[in-house]
Design a protein around this nucleic acid. Sequence first.
RNA 1: GCCCUUGUAGCUCAGUGGAUAGAGCACCGGACUUCUAAUCCGUUGGUCGUAGGUUCGACUCCUACCAAGGGCGCCA
Length: 579
Amino acid sequence: MADPIVYVEQRIAAAFAKVAGAKADGIDTAVRASDRADAQVNGSIALAKAMGLTPRDVATKVLEVADLKDICSDAQVAGPGFINLTFQNEFLARELMSSSASEKLGVRNATKPRKIVIDYSAPNVAKEMHVGHLRSTVIGDALVRMLMFVGNTVVRENHVGDWGTPFGMLIEHLVDLGETHAANELSVGDLDSFYRSARKKFDESEQFQARARARVVLLQGGDAETLRLWKLLVAESTRYFQMIYRTLGVLLEDTDIMGESAYNNLLPQVVERLGKLKMLTTSDGAEVVFAEGFVNRENQPLPLIIRKTDGGYNYATSDLACVIDRVERLDADLLLYVVGAPQAQHLQMVAAVSKQAGWLNSSREMVHVSFGNVLGADKKMLKTRSGETVKLDALLTESVERAAAAVAEKNPELSDVEKAKIARTVGIGAVKYADLSTDRIKDYTFDWDRMLSFDGNTAPYLQYAHARICSIFRRANVERASVRSFEPVISHTAERELAMRVLQFDSALWDTIDKYSPHRLCTYLYELATSFSSFYEQCPVLKAETETERTSRLMLCDLTARVMQTGLGVLGIEAPEQM
RNA sequence: GCCCUUGUAGCUCAGUGGAUAGAGCACCGGACUUCUAAUCCGUUGGUCGUAGGUUCGACUCCUACCAAGGGCGCCA
């Protein structure tokens, strides 16, 4: 327990219970951060009516019985009936020590760890990854890291698009090009032109269309030669994805790939089981499930199509198979889908059908971690087929190059190896942070300058704060670990603000996890960095006036750096020691 | 037509029913013989889309409307 606000909350709740008894039930006695004091409680106002007292009287009574002697230096009733709390510096110092001594820097573990399957990234085989694919990959990676950090078991699943009708056309194009030539073209990483050529042929030639359709039948029928060609496409694409993932520094591995094709043998079972449950209806020749509450344009019930008129399956079937597999084989109790907002209705229908079928319930749930689109200059969704999209690869390369130029200018004395390493860390960090730092639910318009900015609220700013602290310790020639158990003396306002901020790591991280919203942690880390920068300007560390002051500040610096590094770490961003 | 999401400073965005709505960028003015100036300090900038409602209190909750984006039967 390191966050003073979390700490004091119990004492306040106890005081409310003492004053109001059962009337305090359901009253919000939460303690919140405030600009008027360290923290504020406003439950007295809501409670006043029920008790027949004025809000200020209630607040006064609460303060009379509240046990705050060892925590607060000041507790006052203010305004209409708020309670403003100011923490003792000695209390903050004790909490800092507790945070410093804990391996997780004061962050509480999950009270009930879960087994979580998280579905993210999901690029398409034989298609280039463009800037639109950044979101799922980066948000998913951050969630994986933070969920694991607090003690959950997390299974990563990359649901790549490796099956379905487009593969007829892709395989036929592969045959036309010849395997060697095709493999060569694909390995260069120019997947878009491969896909576009195939598409063009498909659109222009009926003969080619017929071949493509026949090939899909062969593929789904398990024809050995067709499967061999299909695997060739998948293997080349997988290599390309893995190259992007390594550059990006995300945790995804080849072994995390659970493509659409992986569920093939489960698809007949889905139909069978829904049939047994009497959920299937035949409609216009297709096998469908009508989930309650979904209607189409004509206000008729909207079906989830399980088996098409031609006997084939589609993505609804495979998504249901996924649910079954994740619940029954993996025994997951939480399924996260880091998938774009346009899929919202589809996923709602899959969830509704899964609940009706009993695969999901109140203790096994699925959550759509939805995110807005990356828009083009025309404010429309980026589409690979129309208009030029920025390739993810190109964006990352450009960012690293700009970072390299910045490092060369600011730190010319570093070795080339170090410079290159820092440029990668800063360049990649900037791009990831640009995506993670805004609310995932909102669309954003792609903008080079925004993605590649190194000033203000950006990853390099947070990394810089960390690097400065590392620099202090290098100069001082002091081992970081040696100051960790020192009880700091807090006197300066800037020290105090930094201390308060450091102690909020636990709440900030949990708030982020509860809402699956990485931008909340970004906001916190940015505030931590600004608090540190302000402290850095005002409070000399190495030239502190006394030995106690110096060691106190070193202790605070070390803890700040650890929180920054850990916080950036769970966002998937590295914190270099120099930059 | 129905449904979902979004609308906050010139631009990009934070904001947990709580007091006077905050940052960054841009603009303007300061601070490097100093622990890293990728920084700091200050100035300027607001009908929180519009109109009602609930509440002691609304950017936040509810309703209607406006605008933008997305979804709505065999592509994934």
